[in-house]
């Protein structure tokens, strides 16, 4: 579901909720060493929206991290169409 290659963490979008929990636990203690989160595989959709909120949470916690999927304010998925949000939402207001 995810693997780390140097400073790049590669994940797949089709991970389930349990995998997202595992990923969160994995990444939390390693966040400062990770510079980029890439997506493996193409043509897949999110299996759970929990992964989307995890990615946004990571971006809020470490704005400089590179997550190509979140570049811009939208991305297009094969079956779920264009997924959009606003730029302000990536700013941690807390």
């Amino acid at each position: 579901m995810f693997n780390i290659d140097g400073e790049v963490l590669n994940i797949t979008l089709d991970m389930g909720l349990d995998d997202v929990v595992e990923l969160k636990n994995f990444i939390e203690s390693r966040l400062e060493y990770i510079d980029e989160i890439g997506i493996d595989g193409s043509g897949k959709d999110f299996a759970t929206s929990s992964l989307l909120q995890l990615l946004i949470s990571i971006k809020k916690s470490k704005p400089e991290i590179k997550i190509p999927l979140l570049e811009g304010c939208n991305f297009e998925l094969k079956e779920f169409g264009k997924i959009s949000w606003t730029e302000e939402e990536l700013v941690d207001n807390g």
Binding site: K62, T86, E89
Partner: peptide
């Protein structure tokens, strides 16, 4: 198309993925 309100997503240390 879909528009997601992600403004309430907390930073990682406060996030409960469930």
């Amino acid at each position: 198309s879909s528009f997601w309100d992600l403004s309430k997503v907390p930073p990682l240390n406060e996030l409960d993925p469930q």
